[in-house]
Design a binder for these strands. Structure first.
Lengths: 229, 229
DNA sequence: ACCTGAACACCGTTCAAGT
DNA sequence: ACCTGAACACCGTTCAAGT
Protein backbone atom coordinates (compact mmCIF):
# COMPACT_ATOMS: atom_id res chain seq x y z
CA UNK A 1 0.00 0.00 0.00
CA UNK A 2 2.80 2.39 -0.83
CA UNK A 3 1.23 5.80 -0.79
CA UNK A 4 4.07 7.49 -2.58
CA UNK A 5 3.54 5.88 -5.93
CA UNK A 6 0.25 7.67 -6.15
CA UNK A 7 2.14 10.59 -7.50
CA UNK A 8 2.97 8.76 -10.69
CA UNK A 9 -0.67 8.58 -11.58
CA UNK A 10 -0.57 12.15 -12.63
CA UNK A 11 -2.96 15.01 -12.47
CA UNK A 12 -6.02 13.04 -13.44
CA UNK A 13 -6.84 11.18 -10.22
CA UNK A 14 -8.95 13.19 -7.90
CA UNK A 15 -10.71 10.66 -5.67
CA UNK A 16 -9.61 7.18 -4.70
CA UNK A 17 -8.40 5.64 -7.93
CA UNK A 18 -9.58 5.11 -11.47
CA UNK A 19 -10.54 1.57 -10.63
CA UNK A 20 -12.33 0.71 -13.86
CA UNK A 21 -9.52 1.79 -16.19
CA UNK A 22 -8.58 -1.57 -17.68
CA UNK A 23 -5.19 -2.46 -19.06
CA UNK A 24 -6.17 -3.01 -22.66
CA UNK A 25 -7.36 0.56 -23.02
CA UNK A 26 -4.88 2.18 -25.38
CA UNK A 27 -5.18 5.41 -23.40
CA UNK A 28 -5.68 7.41 -26.57
CA UNK A 29 -8.96 6.35 -28.09
CA UNK A 30 -9.64 6.38 -31.80
CA UNK A 31 -12.43 8.81 -32.60
CA UNK A 32 -16.00 7.71 -32.19
CA UNK A 33 -17.63 6.25 -35.27
CA UNK A 34 -20.70 4.24 -36.12
CA UNK A 35 -18.54 1.21 -36.83
CA UNK A 36 -16.81 1.37 -33.45
CA UNK A 37 -20.12 1.87 -31.68
CA UNK A 38 -21.72 -1.12 -33.37
CA UNK A 39 -18.70 -3.37 -32.88
CA UNK A 40 -18.48 -2.48 -29.22
CA UNK A 41 -22.20 -3.00 -28.77
CA UNK A 42 -21.80 -6.52 -30.15
CA UNK A 43 -18.94 -7.16 -27.73
CA UNK A 44 -21.05 -5.97 -24.85
CA UNK A 45 -24.03 -8.04 -25.92
CA UNK A 46 -21.87 -11.13 -26.29
CA UNK A 47 -20.43 -10.60 -22.83
CA UNK A 48 -23.48 -9.47 -20.90
CA UNK A 49 -26.61 -10.37 -22.83
CA UNK A 50 -29.50 -8.19 -23.90
CA UNK A 51 -29.98 -6.57 -20.52
CA UNK A 52 -26.28 -5.86 -20.29
CA UNK A 53 -26.33 -3.35 -23.14
CA UNK A 54 -26.68 0.09 -21.70
CA UNK A 55 -25.92 3.39 -23.32
CA UNK A 56 -23.86 4.33 -20.30
CA UNK A 57 -21.85 1.12 -20.31
CA UNK A 58 -21.39 1.36 -24.04
CA UNK A 59 -20.01 4.86 -23.74
CA UNK A 60 -17.73 3.70 -20.94
CA UNK A 61 -16.20 1.00 -23.12
CA UNK A 62 -15.71 3.50 -25.88
CA UNK A 63 -14.06 5.98 -23.57
CA UNK A 64 -16.55 8.71 -24.37
CA UNK A 65 -19.38 10.52 -22.67
CA UNK A 66 -22.81 8.96 -22.90
CA UNK A 67 -24.31 11.72 -24.91
CA UNK A 68 -21.62 11.54 -27.54
CA UNK A 69 -23.28 8.38 -28.79
CA UNK A 70 -26.39 10.30 -29.67
CA UNK A 71 -24.66 12.23 -32.34
CA UNK A 72 -24.02 9.01 -34.28
CA UNK A 73 -27.22 7.24 -33.40
CA UNK A 74 -30.82 8.21 -32.82
CA UNK A 75 -31.52 6.07 -29.80
CA UNK A 76 -30.86 2.73 -28.15
CA UNK A 77 -33.25 0.93 -30.49
CA UNK A 78 -31.05 1.81 -33.41
CA UNK A 79 -28.03 0.37 -31.64
CA UNK A 80 -29.93 -2.90 -31.33
CA UNK A 81 -30.95 -2.86 -34.99
CA UNK A 82 -27.43 -2.21 -36.19
CA UNK A 83 -25.79 -4.73 -33.87
CA UNK A 84 -28.24 -7.39 -34.95
CA UNK A 85 -27.84 -6.85 -38.66
CA UNK A 86 -24.06 -6.62 -38.40
CA UNK A 87 -23.99 -10.12 -36.96
CA UNK A 88 -26.00 -11.59 -39.80
CA UNK A 89 -23.77 -10.88 -42.75
CA UNK A 90 -23.70 -13.77 -45.22
CA UNK A 91 -20.56 -14.59 -47.09
CA UNK A 92 -22.17 -17.06 -49.42
CA UNK A 93 -21.39 -20.68 -50.17
CA UNK A 94 -17.77 -21.80 -50.77
CA UNK A 95 -17.94 -21.65 -54.53
CA UNK A 96 -20.14 -19.20 -56.32
CA UNK A 97 -20.66 -21.34 -59.42
CA UNK A 98 -24.16 -22.04 -60.64
CA UNK A 99 -24.56 -25.23 -58.67
CA UNK A 100 -27.00 -27.94 -59.62
CA UNK A 101 -27.44 -28.92 -55.97
CA UNK A 102 -30.07 -26.39 -54.96
CA UNK A 103 -31.06 -28.42 -51.93
CA UNK A 104 -27.51 -28.48 -50.63
CA UNK A 105 -27.35 -24.73 -51.12
CA UNK A 106 -30.53 -24.14 -49.18
CA UNK A 107 -29.38 -26.36 -46.34
CA UNK A 108 -26.04 -24.58 -46.26
CA UNK A 109 -27.70 -21.18 -46.14
CA UNK A 110 -30.00 -22.12 -43.30
CA UNK A 111 -27.27 -23.90 -41.36
CA UNK A 112 -25.10 -20.83 -41.66
CA UNK A 113 -27.95 -18.59 -40.58
CA UNK A 114 -28.54 -20.68 -37.51
CA UNK A 115 -24.83 -20.87 -36.72
CA UNK A 116 -24.45 -17.10 -36.98
CA UNK A 117 -27.18 -16.58 -34.46
CA UNK A 118 -25.95 -19.25 -32.07
CA UNK A 119 -22.58 -17.52 -32.04
CA UNK A 120 -24.37 -14.50 -30.58
CA UNK A 121 -27.03 -15.93 -28.31
CA UNK A 122 -28.79 -12.59 -27.84
CA UNK A 123 -29.44 -12.24 -31.56
CA UNK A 124 -32.08 -14.90 -32.11
CA UNK A 125 -34.49 -13.73 -29.46
CA UNK A 126 -33.95 -10.17 -30.60
CA UNK A 127 -34.52 -10.63 -34.32
CA UNK A 128 -38.29 -11.10 -34.38
CA UNK A 129 -38.82 -7.81 -32.60
CA UNK A 130 -36.63 -5.69 -34.79
CA UNK A 131 -36.69 -4.22 -38.23
CA UNK A 132 -35.33 -6.31 -41.06
CA UNK A 133 -31.93 -4.91 -41.93
CA UNK A 134 -30.10 -5.26 -45.26
CA UNK A 135 -28.23 -8.41 -44.29
CA UNK A 136 -31.44 -10.15 -43.27
CA UNK A 137 -33.17 -9.05 -46.44
CA UNK A 138 -30.17 -10.22 -48.41
CA UNK A 139 -30.47 -13.68 -46.94
CA UNK A 140 -34.17 -13.78 -47.73
CA UNK A 141 -33.51 -12.66 -51.27
CA UNK A 142 -30.90 -15.33 -51.85
CA UNK A 143 -33.14 -18.00 -50.38
CA UNK A 144 -35.99 -16.91 -52.62
CA UNK A 145 -33.85 -16.91 -55.70
CA UNK A 146 -32.52 -20.38 -54.99
CA UNK A 147 -35.93 -21.88 -54.36
CA UNK A 148 -37.32 -20.18 -57.41
CA UNK A 149 -34.51 -21.56 -59.55
CA UNK A 150 -35.17 -24.99 -58.03
CA UNK A 151 -38.64 -24.95 -59.52
CA UNK A 152 -40.86 -23.74 -56.70
CA UNK A 153 -43.84 -22.04 -58.31
CA UNK A 154 -44.33 -18.35 -57.65
CA UNK A 155 -47.61 -19.05 -55.88
CA UNK A 156 -45.87 -21.37 -53.44
CA UNK A 157 -42.83 -19.24 -52.86
CA UNK A 158 -44.01 -17.20 -49.92
CA UNK A 159 -45.33 -20.26 -48.13
CA UNK A 160 -42.00 -21.99 -48.60
CA UNK A 161 -39.94 -19.05 -47.42
CA UNK A 162 -41.97 -18.36 -44.34
CA UNK A 163 -42.13 -22.00 -43.36
CA UNK A 164 -38.37 -22.25 -43.53
CA UNK A 165 -37.90 -18.91 -41.78
CA UNK A 166 -40.28 -19.92 -39.01
CA UNK A 167 -38.57 -23.22 -38.54
CA UNK A 168 -35.08 -21.80 -38.41
CA UNK A 169 -36.06 -18.97 -36.10
CA UNK A 170 -37.90 -21.28 -33.74
CA UNK A 171 -35.10 -23.81 -33.64
CA UNK A 172 -32.46 -21.18 -33.00
CA UNK A 173 -34.36 -19.25 -30.38
CA UNK A 174 -35.22 -22.41 -28.47
CA UNK A 175 -31.75 -23.86 -28.72
CA UNK A 176 -30.12 -20.65 -27.61
CA UNK A 177 -32.38 -20.20 -24.63
CA UNK A 178 -31.83 -23.75 -23.46
CA UNK A 179 -28.12 -23.25 -23.56
CA UNK A 180 -28.40 -20.14 -21.50
CA UNK A 181 -30.41 -21.41 -18.62
CA UNK A 182 -29.10 -24.67 -17.24
CA UNK A 183 -30.68 -23.75 -13.94
CA UNK A 184 -34.13 -23.51 -15.40
CA UNK A 185 -33.74 -26.84 -17.12
CA UNK A 186 -32.68 -28.51 -13.91
CA UNK A 187 -35.61 -26.91 -12.13
CA UNK A 188 -37.98 -28.01 -14.87
CA UNK A 189 -36.64 -31.51 -14.75
CA UNK A 190 -37.26 -31.51 -11.01
CA UNK A 191 -40.86 -30.61 -11.59
CA UNK A 192 -41.09 -33.38 -14.18
CA UNK A 193 -40.32 -36.06 -11.64
CA UNK A 194 -43.62 -35.27 -10.05
CA UNK A 195 -46.15 -37.74 -11.40
CA UNK A 196 -47.81 -35.40 -13.88
CA UNK A 197 -45.61 -35.65 -16.97
CA UNK A 198 -44.78 -39.33 -17.45
CA UNK A 199 -44.24 -39.26 -21.20
CA UNK A 200 -41.78 -36.42 -21.46
CA UNK A 201 -40.07 -37.64 -18.34
CA UNK A 202 -39.51 -41.02 -19.91
CA UNK A 203 -38.20 -39.55 -23.14
CA UNK A 204 -35.96 -37.17 -21.16
CA UNK A 205 -37.15 -34.43 -23.49
CA UNK A 206 -35.40 -31.65 -21.64
CA UNK A 207 -32.10 -33.39 -21.21
CA UNK A 208 -31.03 -35.68 -24.00
CA UNK A 209 -32.21 -33.90 -27.08
CA UNK A 210 -29.89 -33.93 -30.05
CA UNK A 211 -30.51 -30.39 -31.18
CA UNK A 212 -28.42 -30.44 -34.31
CA UNK A 213 -29.84 -33.75 -35.46
CA UNK A 214 -33.39 -32.68 -34.76
CA UNK A 215 -32.82 -29.48 -36.68
CA UNK A 216 -31.56 -31.27 -39.76
CA UNK A 217 -34.25 -33.92 -39.72
CA UNK A 218 -37.13 -31.48 -39.41
CA UNK A 219 -35.59 -29.33 -42.10
CA UNK A 220 -35.36 -32.30 -44.43
CA UNK A 221 -39.02 -33.10 -43.93
CA UNK A 222 -39.98 -29.50 -44.65
CA UNK A 223 -37.94 -29.45 -47.81
CA UNK A 224 -39.41 -32.76 -48.95
CA UNK A 225 -42.85 -31.20 -48.76
CA UNK A 226 -42.10 -27.70 -49.94
CA UNK A 227 -40.04 -28.50 -53.01
CA UNK A 228 -40.44 -32.12 -54.04
CA UNK A 229 -38.22 -33.48 -56.72
CA UNK B 1 -62.52 27.04 -14.67
CA UNK B 2 -64.72 27.51 -11.62
CA UNK B 3 -62.41 27.60 -8.69
CA UNK B 4 -65.12 27.09 -6.12
CA UNK B 5 -65.92 23.50 -7.01
CA UNK B 6 -62.49 22.54 -5.89
CA UNK B 7 -63.87 22.25 -2.40
CA UNK B 8 -66.03 19.28 -3.27
CA UNK B 9 -62.97 17.20 -4.01
CA UNK B 10 -62.47 16.64 -0.30
CA UNK B 11 -59.54 16.38 1.98
CA UNK B 12 -57.47 14.17 -0.27
CA UNK B 13 -56.39 16.55 -2.99
CA UNK B 14 -53.28 18.41 -2.11
CA UNK B 15 -51.83 19.43 -5.46
CA UNK B 16 -53.64 19.93 -8.71
CA UNK B 17 -55.96 16.97 -9.01
CA UNK B 18 -55.80 13.19 -8.82
CA UNK B 19 -55.76 13.00 -12.56
CA UNK B 20 -55.04 9.30 -12.93
CA UNK B 21 -57.83 8.07 -10.71
CA UNK B 22 -59.99 6.31 -13.28
CA UNK B 23 -63.71 5.76 -13.00
CA UNK B 24 -63.72 2.00 -12.92
CA UNK B 25 -61.77 1.88 -9.70
CA UNK B 26 -64.21 0.54 -7.10
CA UNK B 27 -62.62 2.78 -4.49
CA UNK B 28 -62.37 -0.08 -2.04
CA UNK B 29 -59.94 -2.58 -3.43
CA UNK B 30 -60.10 -6.29 -2.77
CA UNK B 31 -57.00 -7.43 -0.91
CA UNK B 32 -53.86 -8.14 -2.83
CA UNK B 33 -53.38 -11.72 -3.94
CA UNK B 34 -51.18 -13.61 -6.36
CA UNK B 35 -54.17 -14.19 -8.63
CA UNK B 36 -55.01 -10.48 -8.80
CA UNK B 37 -51.41 -9.59 -9.40
CA UNK B 38 -51.03 -12.06 -12.26
CA UNK B 39 -54.36 -11.14 -13.85
CA UNK B 40 -53.54 -7.45 -13.70
CA UNK B 41 -50.08 -8.06 -15.10
CA UNK B 42 -51.68 -9.79 -18.09
CA UNK B 43 -54.01 -6.82 -18.58
CA UNK B 44 -51.09 -4.45 -18.48
CA UNK B 45 -49.06 -6.55 -20.90
CA UNK B 46 -51.98 -6.78 -23.30
CA UNK B 47 -52.45 -3.04 -23.18
CA UNK B 48 -48.88 -1.80 -23.17
CA UNK B 49 -46.57 -4.60 -24.31
CA UNK B 50 -43.50 -6.06 -22.65
CA UNK B 51 -41.91 -2.72 -21.91
CA UNK B 52 -45.17 -1.45 -20.45
CA UNK B 53 -45.08 -3.80 -17.49
CA UNK B 54 -43.54 -2.01 -14.59
CA UNK B 55 -43.72 -2.88 -10.93
CA UNK B 56 -44.77 0.66 -10.20
CA UNK B 57 -47.50 0.73 -12.83
CA UNK B 58 -48.69 -2.69 -11.75
CA UNK B 59 -49.01 -1.54 -8.15
CA UNK B 60 -50.84 1.56 -9.36
CA UNK B 61 -53.45 -0.53 -11.16
CA UNK B 62 -53.87 -2.65 -8.08
CA UNK B 63 -54.27 0.33 -5.82
CA UNK B 64 -51.38 -0.65 -3.61
CA UNK B 65 -47.87 0.50 -2.88
CA UNK B 66 -45.10 -0.85 -5.05
CA UNK B 67 -43.42 -2.76 -2.30
CA UNK B 68 -46.56 -4.62 -1.34
CA UNK B 69 -46.09 -6.69 -4.48
CA UNK B 70 -42.86 -8.04 -3.14
CA UNK B 71 -44.57 -9.90 -0.36
CA UNK B 72 -46.42 -12.04 -2.91
CA UNK B 73 -43.67 -12.27 -5.48
CA UNK B 74 -39.90 -12.53 -5.43
CA UNK B 75 -39.17 -10.14 -8.25
CA UNK B 76 -40.30 -8.89 -11.62
CA UNK B 77 -39.03 -12.00 -13.39
CA UNK B 78 -41.50 -14.09 -11.47
CA UNK B 79 -44.33 -11.82 -12.57
CA UNK B 80 -43.33 -12.49 -16.17
CA UNK B 81 -43.15 -16.24 -15.61
CA UNK B 82 -46.56 -16.38 -13.98
CA UNK B 83 -48.26 -14.10 -16.48
CA UNK B 84 -46.90 -16.16 -19.35
CA UNK B 85 -47.91 -19.52 -18.00
CA UNK B 86 -51.36 -18.25 -17.02
CA UNK B 87 -52.03 -17.37 -20.62
CA UNK B 88 -51.13 -20.81 -21.90
CA UNK B 89 -53.68 -22.95 -20.13
CA UNK B 90 -55.03 -25.70 -22.39
CA UNK B 91 -58.61 -26.78 -22.09
CA UNK B 92 -58.26 -29.80 -24.34
CA UNK B 93 -60.08 -30.82 -27.47
CA UNK B 94 -63.90 -30.62 -27.64
CA UNK B 95 -64.53 -34.25 -26.76
CA UNK B 96 -62.19 -36.17 -24.54
CA UNK B 97 -62.91 -39.56 -26.05
CA UNK B 98 -60.07 -41.71 -27.27
CA UNK B 99 -60.12 -40.40 -30.80
CA UNK B 100 -58.76 -42.33 -33.73
CA UNK B 101 -57.83 -39.12 -35.48
CA UNK B 102 -54.47 -38.45 -33.85
CA UNK B 103 -53.40 -36.12 -36.60
CA UNK B 104 -56.48 -33.99 -36.17
CA UNK B 105 -55.75 -33.86 -32.45
CA UNK B 106 -52.17 -32.74 -32.97
CA UNK B 107 -53.23 -30.06 -35.42
CA UNK B 108 -55.88 -28.85 -33.00
CA UNK B 109 -53.42 -28.66 -30.15
CA UNK B 110 -50.87 -26.70 -32.14
CA UNK B 111 -53.50 -24.41 -33.63
CA UNK B 112 -54.80 -23.67 -30.16
CA UNK B 113 -51.32 -23.06 -28.87
CA UNK B 114 -50.62 -20.60 -31.61
CA UNK B 115 -53.99 -18.91 -31.14
CA UNK B 116 -53.43 -18.50 -27.40
CA UNK B 117 -50.18 -16.73 -28.01
CA UNK B 118 -51.51 -14.52 -30.78
CA UNK B 119 -54.22 -13.37 -28.39
CA UNK B 120 -51.43 -11.99 -26.19
CA UNK B 121 -48.82 -10.74 -28.59
CA UNK B 122 -46.18 -10.26 -25.90
CA UNK B 123 -46.29 -13.94 -24.95
CA UNK B 124 -44.62 -15.53 -27.95
CA UNK B 125 -41.47 -13.46 -27.89
CA UNK B 126 -41.30 -13.89 -24.12
CA UNK B 127 -41.68 -17.65 -23.94
CA UNK B 128 -38.28 -18.76 -25.19
CA UNK B 129 -36.52 -16.72 -22.56
CA UNK B 130 -38.51 -17.92 -19.58
CA UNK B 131 -38.79 -21.04 -17.50
CA UNK B 132 -41.25 -23.69 -18.64
CA UNK B 133 -44.27 -23.44 -16.38
CA UNK B 134 -46.79 -26.19 -15.65
CA UNK B 135 -49.18 -25.22 -18.43
CA UNK B 136 -46.40 -25.33 -21.00
CA UNK B 137 -45.16 -28.66 -19.69
CA UNK B 138 -48.72 -29.94 -19.75
CA UNK B 139 -49.02 -29.09 -23.42
CA UNK B 140 -45.74 -30.82 -24.18
CA UNK B 141 -46.84 -33.89 -22.24
CA UNK B 142 -50.12 -34.13 -24.10
CA UNK B 143 -48.39 -33.69 -27.43
CA UNK B 144 -45.91 -36.43 -26.57
CA UNK B 145 -48.60 -38.81 -25.47
CA UNK B 146 -50.60 -38.28 -28.63
CA UNK B 147 -47.65 -38.77 -30.95
CA UNK B 148 -46.56 -41.82 -29.02
CA UNK B 149 -50.02 -43.33 -29.28
CA UNK B 150 -49.99 -42.53 -32.99
CA UNK B 151 -47.03 -44.84 -33.40
CA UNK B 152 -44.01 -42.56 -33.33
CA UNK B 153 -41.12 -44.63 -32.03
CA UNK B 154 -39.54 -43.60 -28.76
CA UNK B 155 -36.26 -42.86 -30.50
CA UNK B 156 -37.97 -40.41 -32.85
CA UNK B 157 -40.15 -38.75 -30.24
CA UNK B 158 -37.85 -35.96 -29.15
CA UNK B 159 -37.02 -35.05 -32.72
CA UNK B 160 -40.71 -34.87 -33.54
CA UNK B 161 -41.63 -32.77 -30.53
CA UNK B 162 -38.86 -30.26 -30.94
CA UNK B 163 -39.45 -29.90 -34.66
CA UNK B 164 -43.08 -29.11 -34.02
CA UNK B 165 -42.30 -26.83 -31.09
CA UNK B 166 -39.71 -24.97 -33.14
CA UNK B 167 -42.07 -24.54 -36.02
CA UNK B 168 -44.95 -23.30 -33.90
CA UNK B 169 -42.79 -20.95 -31.91
CA UNK B 170 -41.15 -19.51 -34.98
CA UNK B 171 -44.42 -19.04 -36.80
CA UNK B 172 -46.08 -17.37 -33.85
CA UNK B 173 -43.22 -15.08 -32.95
CA UNK B 174 -42.82 -13.93 -36.53
CA UNK B 175 -46.51 -13.48 -37.10
CA UNK B 176 -46.95 -11.54 -33.89
CA UNK B 177 -44.07 -9.21 -34.58
CA UNK B 178 -45.25 -8.48 -38.07
CA UNK B 179 -48.64 -7.53 -36.75
CA UNK B 180 -47.09 -5.17 -34.28
CA UNK B 181 -44.91 -3.15 -36.55
CA UNK B 182 -46.69 -1.96 -39.65
CA UNK B 183 -44.24 0.92 -39.76
CA UNK B 184 -41.25 -1.35 -40.00
CA UNK B 185 -42.85 -3.36 -42.75
CA UNK B 186 -43.58 -0.27 -44.74
CA UNK B 187 -40.03 0.89 -44.21
CA UNK B 188 -38.67 -2.50 -45.21
CA UNK B 189 -40.84 -2.51 -48.30
CA UNK B 190 -39.43 0.89 -49.19
CA UNK B 191 -35.95 -0.50 -49.01
CA UNK B 192 -37.04 -3.41 -51.18
CA UNK B 193 -37.89 -1.17 -54.09
CA UNK B 194 -34.23 -0.40 -54.35
CA UNK B 195 -32.78 -2.69 -56.97
CA UNK B 196 -31.16 -5.17 -54.62
CA UNK B 197 -33.97 -7.57 -53.75
CA UNK B 198 -35.82 -8.33 -57.00
CA UNK B 199 -37.14 -11.76 -56.06
CA UNK B 200 -38.76 -10.95 -52.74
CA UNK B 201 -39.99 -7.70 -54.17
CA UNK B 202 -41.74 -9.55 -56.97
CA UNK B 203 -43.31 -12.08 -54.62
CA UNK B 204 -44.36 -9.26 -52.27
CA UNK B 205 -43.05 -11.39 -49.44
CA UNK B 206 -43.53 -8.79 -46.76
CA UNK B 207 -47.01 -7.77 -47.81
CA UNK B 208 -49.23 -10.47 -49.21
CA UNK B 209 -48.32 -13.46 -47.13
CA UNK B 210 -51.17 -15.71 -46.06
CA UNK B 211 -49.91 -16.44 -42.57
CA UNK B 212 -52.58 -18.90 -41.53
CA UNK B 213 -52.36 -20.81 -44.77
CA UNK B 214 -48.59 -20.93 -44.67
CA UNK B 215 -48.69 -22.16 -41.10
CA UNK B 216 -51.03 -25.03 -41.92
CA UNK B 217 -49.17 -26.06 -45.03
CA UNK B 218 -45.76 -26.18 -43.40
CA UNK B 219 -47.24 -28.04 -40.46
CA UNK B 220 -48.73 -30.63 -42.78
CA UNK B 221 -45.39 -31.21 -44.43
CA UNK B 222 -43.70 -31.64 -41.09
CA UNK B 223 -46.31 -34.13 -39.94
CA UNK B 224 -46.03 -36.07 -43.18
CA UNK B 225 -42.35 -36.55 -42.48
CA UNK B 226 -42.42 -37.00 -38.74
CA UNK B 227 -45.24 -39.50 -38.46
CA UNK B 228 -46.03 -41.11 -41.78
CA UNK B 229 -49.05 -43.32 -42.00
C1' DA C 1 -49.22 -12.18 8.06
C1' DC C 2 -49.42 -8.40 5.29
C1' DC C 3 -48.35 -3.71 3.74
C1' DT C 4 -45.59 0.75 3.44
C1' DG C 5 -42.26 5.00 2.25
C1' DA C 6 -37.72 6.50 1.94
C1' DA C 7 -33.59 5.67 -0.17
C1' DC C 8 -30.09 3.59 -3.42
C1' DA C 9 -28.12 2.66 -7.59
C1' DC C 10 -29.27 2.59 -11.68
C1' DC C 11 -31.79 3.71 -16.57
C1' DG C 12 -32.69 6.60 -21.60
C1' DT C 13 -32.98 10.96 -23.28
C1' DT C 14 -33.59 16.45 -23.56
C1' DC C 15 -31.33 20.55 -23.49
C1' DA C 16 -28.28 24.10 -23.62
C1' DA C 17 -23.58 24.57 -24.21
C1' DG C 18 -18.87 23.95 -25.42
C1' DT C 19 -14.89 23.20 -29.25
C1' DA D 1 -18.98 18.73 -37.25
C1' DC D 2 -18.46 16.56 -33.12
C1' DC D 3 -18.60 16.04 -28.11
C1' DT D 4 -20.08 17.13 -23.19
C1' DG D 5 -22.37 17.53 -18.16
C1' DA D 6 -26.31 18.64 -15.72
C1' DA D 7 -30.88 17.55 -15.18
C1' DC D 8 -35.42 15.06 -15.73
C1' DA D 9 -38.42 11.47 -15.35
C1' DC D 10 -38.25 7.24 -14.81
C1' DC D 11 -36.66 2.09 -13.27
C1' DG D 12 -36.16 -2.53 -9.68
C1' DT D 13 -35.12 -3.57 -5.22
C1' DT D 14 -33.16 -3.21 -0.07
C1' DC D 15 -34.19 -1.97 4.30
C1' DA D 16 -36.17 -0.76 8.38
C1' DA D 17 -40.58 -0.04 9.95
C1' DG D 18 -45.43 -0.05 10.63
C1' DT D 19 -50.19 -2.83 11.59
Amino acid sequence: MAVKRNGTQGKRSQRISVSLQSVQEPLSEPPLSLERIVATAVELLDAQGVDGLTMRRLADRLGSGVMSLYWHVDNKEEVFDLALDSVLEYRGPPQMVESQDWRGEVVHMLDDWRASMLRHPWSASLLPRRALGPNILGRLELLSKTLSRAGVADTDLNVAIWSLWNYVMGATITRGSFDLSDDDRAAAQQRLTSERYPTIERSRLLLDSDWDGAFRKGLDFLLDGLAPG
